[in-house]
Design a protein around this nucleic acid. Sequence first.
DNA 1: TTGAAAGCGATACCAT
DNA 2: ATGGTATCGCTTTCAA
Lengths: 332, 332
Amino acid sequence: MPTIKDIAKAAGVSPASVSRVINNGPKVGKTTREKIKRIIEEMGYSPNANAQAINAHSSASVGLVLANLIDPFYAALAHGIEQVAARRGAQIFLNSCDDTKESERRAIETLLEHRYQSIVVHSLFLEDEELIRLAKSVPGLVLINRYIEALADRCVWFDDEMGGRLMAQHLVKMGHREIAVIAGESGFSSASQRIPAAIKELNRLGVIVHPEVVEVAPANYEGGQVAMQNLLASKKPFTALITYNDPMAIGAIAMLNAQGLAVPGDVSVIGYDNLMLANCIEPKLTTIHHQIGEMAVVATEMALSKIVMPPAIEKRHFKPHLVERDSVVLRA
Amino acid sequence: MPTIKDIAKAAGVSPASVSRVINNGPKVGKTTREKIKRIIEEMGYSPNANAQAINAHSSASVGLVLANLIDPFYAALAHGIEQVAARRGAQIFLNSCDDTKESERRAIETLLEHRYQSIVVHSLFLEDEELIRLAKSVPGLVLINRYIEALADRCVWFDDEMGGRLMAQHLVKMGHREIAVIAGESGFSSASQRIPAAIKELNRLGVIVHPEVVEVAPANYEGGQVAMQNLLASKKPFTALITYNDPMAIGAIAMLNAQGLAVPGDVSVIGYDNLMLANCIEPKLTTIHHQIGEMAVVATEMALSKIVMPPAIEKRHFKPHLVERDSVVLRA
DNA sequence: TTGAAAGCGATACCAT
DNA sequence: ATGGTATCGCTTTCAA
């Protein structure tokens, strides 16, 4: 691949002129400009973005740290980010980190090494201190779906506790008193408060949740199946089920059906996330909606604008709401 | 952010030594090495990846061009790529291109400018010639889900025509003679042959498909709904439906249900892709399975190994198969 | 083992 | 309008 010097030589001009042409700069004669353009075309030259970045001291793209892309929740997040990036003509440099603290750290470090000025991080495993340390050098680093006091201006997050309470309240309102719980495994325990908040609210409403009806499993469809299997094996009765998210809810429902139990006939089930999935299955899933895409958009815009002026807190702290569909019914 | 010189100065050594330490190179005294390491730590230095890349004449990451991340098909593709990349310690530089030729071109060009040596492209809009031209400068550029004669060694693709035939054969085998079709909009007409192949096969089997029962819509859930609405409005009778992909099938089913028609009771429906979704809904969707993840893996490995030796064609040309579930039944 | 210095590819200031 | 050249941050010979 030719360099700017090769082009300069071939065109019989200096690298400076070629550079001007590349960047549509002024101060190049019409004829020289056209000649240079022609040569560039002919030789198939394209400027080396790395060399450019070294001079510019920054990069236009946004760096993204996410666990993976297959989980619909992350996919929705990534989609929102992608939208904003595309609109701004920015690329996305993605580092997925397969659910370990170490790879999460490496992902962020790599982004820093590339001198990305805009970074969106969804961290599940790193501790506050470490994130604070890493964020220090980049004002355009924002945390998504997480709140850290010291980094409050760079955070965008859900009110997961409220979501948890909504689940609890709805089931109790529908007359359920024997409620099982399927929690999602998540490395960093405080990553989500939705399940603890739900249980707490249940207790407050006078519903005791016995440890035997609380299962923990990977936060996906298969995890939901396994958890439900264990739940059924324990023989504890329950008329309703709280789940960590929609995929788990759907997995649990599949297992219930497989064991000859009907939803919502025998067991009411409530999900979380309101993914597209939730509206496709039968019965349509009652679930908690939160603004995943909107959150991603706000986060990305903050990152790209280097948070010169973070949006008001109401714009960054998203409240969920209940979406009532068919998977929860009044207790007979 | 400090540079290598700052570190060198602070440590009272030359940049060369610091460089050696960074790269775990030999020829540095034990004590010097430790001293340098300490200073690096203290000053929070991390090498500028762009400057490194400019010397290395390449980059370890893989570039990826995809339409978006929200479509489950692309998500599955991205996931496979991500897996391989993570295993190899490589990052992914993603350029999504919102369904236009121009943005697709820009996406690839950006990757070239960054001198990525491994690039995986899913192109829907660019013509063969242009892809050939772009691929010229990078041996590690591979095309996914597309076959171009001149670039045969760099292609990985599905046998979509076979998939189309399978759909047709199955429905006919199940006794259906009045079959509607929902095709997906796709910029580049020849991007997928599954629907044309299905119609052709239907004709071969003696089933005439009238233009009035062929709808075209965006290849997603909403598109499926709209298409079905139009189909029903046309009043043409049909007992079975061929769809472009699972999301469309599921959208169509939702619309059928909404209009009081049962699947598979009144209409049998067959999907394509065998997404997770297909197994979650009720009735479980009969569909065509193809190896999306496997394809992504092969493509990425080819890209990362610069295709010194492309895998045998059987490893790169994937055959689909029918997954029989509950949405297609024998015609009464 | 260590350092000096010549690149790598592009930009931008200063001359002309 | 052009060209010369120092510079960006790092790597890599080549000497010492």
